[in-house]
Design a binder for these strands. Structure first.
Lengths: 217, 217
DNA sequence: ACCGACGCTGAGGAGATCCTGAGAAGGCCG
DNA sequence: CGGCCTTCTCAGGATCTCCTCAGCGTCGGT
């Protein structure tokens, strides 16, 4: 397990290096943003520990650039600030976890291990299928760049269908995941598919008779 | 996106329920461990938010039992304790993330979204015989790259034949596996083989007189 | 060549499945 | 309170599927 630590506090870095090595990690170090970005891009690390406050380029920038370059290495962000919006910002930008300084070493290792356990997949913040783009956090949908005005339920339905693109999704499954699942009548699903088709065009959602619906790219 | 919240603090639960619903989640609630475990096992939730301190059975137990039962639903643990070892315990036990109370709602939602980004389901493999490709998940068939439009029954019949390619499959066997098997008349099979031939070409399914049908690669 | 068994197919109806317009119920905001 | 939005139910109508049936073609054996 190879880990990159990007932080400019030499003392902390040295402590992490020693501790993580003792835990069996191979540790590389960078002391500023640009260097960290380069190293993380060039080398295939299993995880990156990244301070938010960095000389040259801050942590958010580094993560954003990494993701733009298609690097999906898990990133654990460190911050001195305890403000909650920083946390959300860090995650939305593409970081995978977040720790507030001061943190305990045990916690860091546990979180790191949790990150490494996750399948190293591309996990973009946006859902894109065909000319549709859905942002779950902002709860917006655009079609060919044009924004679409959807209600909460319509959006939830579309999100589930898009998360399962290229697959036929049954009405009961939709009822289970988009609605409470307590109801019985799948007609609600049909009605809402109708709403979506009216707003987004008939071709967005295909009916698979006897099976369910499908969206394709 | 359907979420199960397991916590015995009614006030907090109500707040979460309202907030998450407003964010577009379908929210179910359990107030104790055993109930939560049952619900999480029986229903295919997209995520579970789980308090560590619970009546009946604590959060660690619940996660452990869930994982033992093969349930891989992402779990976000909540704890009142700030002790660092609790965090490590929770993650080691099979939880996917961890939040310490008091937490901010914004952070909770961000973390939840991060969990939901995990790749959805494992898709079954494609069936390929000759220039025919059948995708069981998408319920599509392509012939030399060209899509074919099949009904449910036609697809089921073709799938069974393709799974038994290079073998002669009897009509009664088809009646048993593709139909309920309650019927007697094998003429249905003949009719449907006819449909498939009309849509896919005469050469796809060969007749073996007195024995049944066969598809070859 | 003839015959019986077997297989194929066109037609059509019953029923399942899906879509949609209308409207009721409830929440939210001014 | 009144209007607007959202969600959901309901029922009618428009498909589409599935299966049956009967007649015809084909094959193999004699």
């Amino acid at each position: 397990m190879r880990v990159l630590v990007v932080d400019d506090e030499r003392g902390l870095v040295r402590a992490l290096q020693r501790g993580l090595t003792a835990e069996g990690f191979a540790v590389d170090v960078a002391y500023d943003g640009p260097t960290g970005l380069t190293m993380a891009t060039d080398t295939d690390y299993d995880a990156v520990v990244l301070d938010v406050m960095l000389p040259g380029r801050n942590g958010y920038d580094v993560v954003t650039s990494l993701r733009e370059r298609g690097v999906t290495t898990p990133v654990l962000m460190l911050s001195a600030k305890a403000g909650e919006h920083d946390v959300a910002d860090g995650l939305d930008v593409g970081a995978d976890d977040y720790l507030t300084k001061p943190f305990s070493f045990v916690v860091l290792v546990a979180r790191l291990r949790a990150l490494l356990r996750r399948p190293a997949q591309v996990r973009p913040a946006l859902l894109a299928v065909g000319d549709l783009v859905l942002d779950p956090a902002a709860r917006t949908v655009t079609q060919a760049g044009r924004p679409a005005d959807l209600t909460t339920r319509e959006l939830a339905l579309l999100e589930y269908l898009m998360r399962n693109a290229d697959r036929v999704v049954g009405k009961v499954e939709l009822l289970d995941h988009v609605w409470d699942g307590t109801g019985e009548d799948v007609n609600v699903v049909e009605v809402y598919v109708g709403y979506l088709r009216r707003k987004l065009g008939r071709s967005v959602i295909a009916t698979v008779r006897g099976a369910g619906y499908r969206v394709v790219g």
